[in-house]
Design a protein around this nucleic acid. Sequence first.
DNA 1: CGGGGTTTTGAGACCGGTCAAACGCCGTGG
DNA 2: CCACGGCGTTTGACCGGTCTCAAAACCCCG
Lengths: 263, 263
Amino acid sequence: MSSINSSIYTDRGVNHGSVRPAFNRPLGKLKLWSHVSEIGDFLRVQLSSNLGDQDDRFQHINYKAGQHIYLLGQPFESLYLVNSGFLKSVLYDDLGNEQVLDFPMSGDVLAIDSLHTNYHNSEAIALADCNIIKLPYRNLIKLSHRSEQVERAVFGFFSKELMNQQIRLSLLGKSKAEARVAQFLLLLSNRFLSLGYSGNEFNLRMSRCEIGSYLGIKLETVSRVLSSLNESGLISVRQKKIAINDIDALRNLQSPSSSHCSH
Amino acid sequence: MSSINSSIYTDRGVNHGSVRPAFNRPLGKLKLWSHVSEIGDFLRVQLSSNLGDQDDRFQHINYKAGQHIYLLGQPFESLYLVNSGFLKSVLYDDLGNEQVLDFPMSGDVLAIDSLHTNYHNSEAIALADCNIIKLPYRNLIKLSHRSEQVERAVFGFFSKELMNQQIRLSLLGKSKAEARVAQFLLLLSNRFLSLGYSGNEFNLRMSRCEIGSYLGIKLETVSRVLSSLNESGLISVRQKKIAINDIDALRNLQSPSSSHCSH
DNA sequence: CGGGGTTTTGAGACCGGTCAAACGCCGTGG
DNA sequence: CCACGGCGTTTGACCGGTCTCAAAACCCCG
């Protein structure tokens, strides 16, 4: 019953964390996320039945802030289920410019976009210390064949991720900078709340520049909007510490207009 | 061997097309798309082996321009594989504003985003006459269990769709209006080319407003950019008819800048 | 030959980008 | 312990691009 915690570092030093078998660890907050809890339960069944060799297990891996979970171009072999922590996933265009795709948190699955190729199309980097469950693709598929619930969960992840992206698309398509930042804060607030943290006070783990990339605006604009919201009293900003004072007013900042494309 | 072609219309009149069994119809252009061809082949096996009852078959359905393939809020039961034609998929926000998500063409799969709920989160509307293969979700899953190739194709669709969205996100995040329109034209050009049509001359089936929604700019800006590109000679525009004169120059309009978010 | 809808074009205001400087936080080293 | 320097953030001034509002031109259709 002693905790196994062997740290593994290569000379790269960035894309490995410490590894330990998952069965030492309760799944904690995961029950708040239906898809996650379904997968979580079946992982435990799988693990306790102790089938297969070492490779068949679903490992928990710890990453320190700044470490990569996977790098662009690495061979794809696994999905990653975030158990705890906070990360960013980024895409690079032809010129090497960085585009922040998402800030995954507990309950999110990483690397889905790389599934149809043999290598990773994006990168995931820990912004805070993370505990991540590695889901080797082959094993996950095998497991999904044996359990309809796991299968539904897997498809659910995919579909949900796609819908999240669509909602972001819709955000970037319209709305002004103020509305984007407001929606971003509301998104984080909701997310923290559903994870059992405070929805009114939290820390931004990412830089202004990363927020700007995520929202499609410049870092100066992010800063200006935050200052403006701070002055009007809707929020309180102190560096990376955010407090939401008037959540309803924030919601009302949603962009009022779009075009009709009447039919 | 006579062609069955029973038109079905409800009083809604918009969300049904004419239905006929698929085995009357060769799969045509599908072979250009690896994922599609895989699915296509296995559909044919499935159909010729004539297993299951009527519901197990994968039907081809014809839609006229303007008809909905599915509506927001309708119960989700099927994915749809576009065999031929041209459509738009749209998302509606809380205020009813329309956001164009994509312009699906032959080889695309619709309704993936609705898979994790019991109803549709978006709508798909035919912009030109379409022939679409209905893939009832349950049947598709059953088929994928029997064939690893089909299973890979299904996952491939999902992952690829997600990556497409990410690339669009990255486009909306940066770049100026001119670069967006240029990229849009190149995207259409490539797509038409890979479907066997001309990549240099084609018709825009969608309105300026729908292009604007897709690109995150206003319809007037779309028009202005097209006029500007026309004057500089890179393209020729005449209403909905587009001719690309200098494809390399178009490619060079890609946005030059982004931020570093240095780490 | 009109009439409705779409597209084009124009003029002006405003938002956000750009460049630049000052500030604050924090770790390093004297 | 404090001084220094690096980095991220804030704030300012200016400029350019996009939105907005509006009117004219164009297309398709009867």
